[in-house]
Simulated scan of single mutants.
Amino acid sequence: MQDLMNLEGATTEEKALFYRKTYGHVAGGVLVFILVEYLFLQSQTIVNFALSLLDGYLWLITLGGFMLVTHYAESVVAKSHDRNVQYLGYLLYIIAEAFIFVPLIYIAIAYANGPVLQQAAILTLSLFTGLSAVVLLTKKDFSFLRSIITIASFIALGLIVAGILFGFELGLWFSVGMVALAAGAILYQTSNLVHKYQSDQYVVAALGLFSALMLLFWYILRIFLSRD
């Protein structure tokens, strides 16, 4: 079936259509994220609840819950052949991302000096576009980054947990390292776009790219906030 063709054997037109669908779904995910985030921030109850979760063990539990939701959403999107189920999994992940971002974006809006949120968003989108372009134009295979990203993610998670348990700040250089990790994830996910996915897997591909984009945005925003 043509719909299940691997992209490495597809025509230029078929590849272009897959890329348009994938990045269209990433853009759609960003728009839904902005809408859900806006709605969350309009509720003082949700904002207060999200801020209360920043304290010690509660934030650790929140991160654990977010990881479970992320794993479930990714599994649903990757394994289901029902497009509606894939969209529901994608939407669930976007909502989870929007909630986890509530404290950070609230602080950026309420306490930061200058248009920090806008600056972080512009830099994030610029880096995302540039990194994606590198892969799409060169067609280089970055699949070797998978093991590096996995190991680095476990190390980062361990540092985050240790910071919460023992009450120390991870600091600016940790955020810089996480930006590098997110950049690697974008290269890896874009490489999968070129070399791994079949032409009907644009929702799966979009979720992978969206998650890397959100990770990049989180730590770029933290760096901008650390200047104040």
Score class of each variant (00 low, 15 high):
residue 2 Q to R: 06
residue 7 L to Y: 11
residue 13 E to L: 09
residue 13 E to V: 12
residue 13 E to D: 13
residue 14 E to F: 06
residue 15 K to L: 07
residue 16 A to D: 14
residue 18 F to Y: 03
residue 18 F to W: 03
residue 20 R to N: 14
residue 21 K to V: 07
residue 24 G to I: 12
residue 28 G to S: 08
residue 28 G to A: 10
residue 29 G to N: 05
residue 30 V to K: 01
residue 30 V to P: 03
residue 33 F to V: 13
residue 35 L to C: 03
residue 36 V to G: 07
residue 38 Y to P: 12
residue 41 L to F: 08
residue 42 Q to D: 10
residue 45 T to C: 02
residue 46 I to A: 07
residue 47 V to P: 04
residue 47 V to S: 06
residue 52 S to F: 10
residue 54 L to Q: 08
residue 56 G to P: 08
residue 56 G to F: 12
residue 57 Y to I: 14
residue 57 Y to T: 12
residue 59 W to K: 13
residue 60 L to G: 15
residue 64 G to E: 06
residue 69 V to C: 04
residue 70 T to P: 07
residue 71 H to C: 08
residue 75 S to W: 04
residue 77 V to I: 13
residue 80 S to N: 09
residue 80 S to R: 01
residue 81 H to G: 15
residue 84 N to Q: 13
residue 91 L to F: 15
residue 98 A to V: 14
residue 104 L to I: 11
residue 105 I to R: 00
residue 108 A to K: 10
residue 108 A to P: 08
residue 109 I to K: 14
residue 109 I to T: 06
residue 113 N to G: 06
residue 113 N to E: 13
residue 114 G to C: 09
residue 119 Q to V: 11
residue 124 T to Y: 07
residue 129 T to S: 13
residue 132 S to V: 12
residue 139 K to F: 04
residue 141 D to I: 10
residue 143 S to T: 15
residue 148 I to A: 10
residue 148 I to F: 12
residue 151 I to H: 08
residue 154 F to A: 11
residue 156 A to H: 12
residue 163 G to W: 02
residue 174 F to C: 05
residue 176 V to M: 09
residue 177 G to D: 04
residue 177 G to P: 01
residue 181 L to T: 08
residue 182 A to Q: 02
residue 183 A to D: 05
residue 186 I to G: 00
residue 187 L to N: 03
residue 192 N to L: 00
residue 193 L to C: 06
residue 195 H to I: 08
residue 196 K to P: 00
residue 197 Y to V: 12
residue 199 S to I: 05
residue 199 S to Y: 00
residue 204 V to G: 04
residue 208 G to R: 02
residue 210 F to Q: 03
residue 212 A to I: 02
residue 212 A to G: 06
residue 216 L to N: 08
residue 221 L to R: 00
residue 222 R to F: 09
residue 227 R to Q: 08
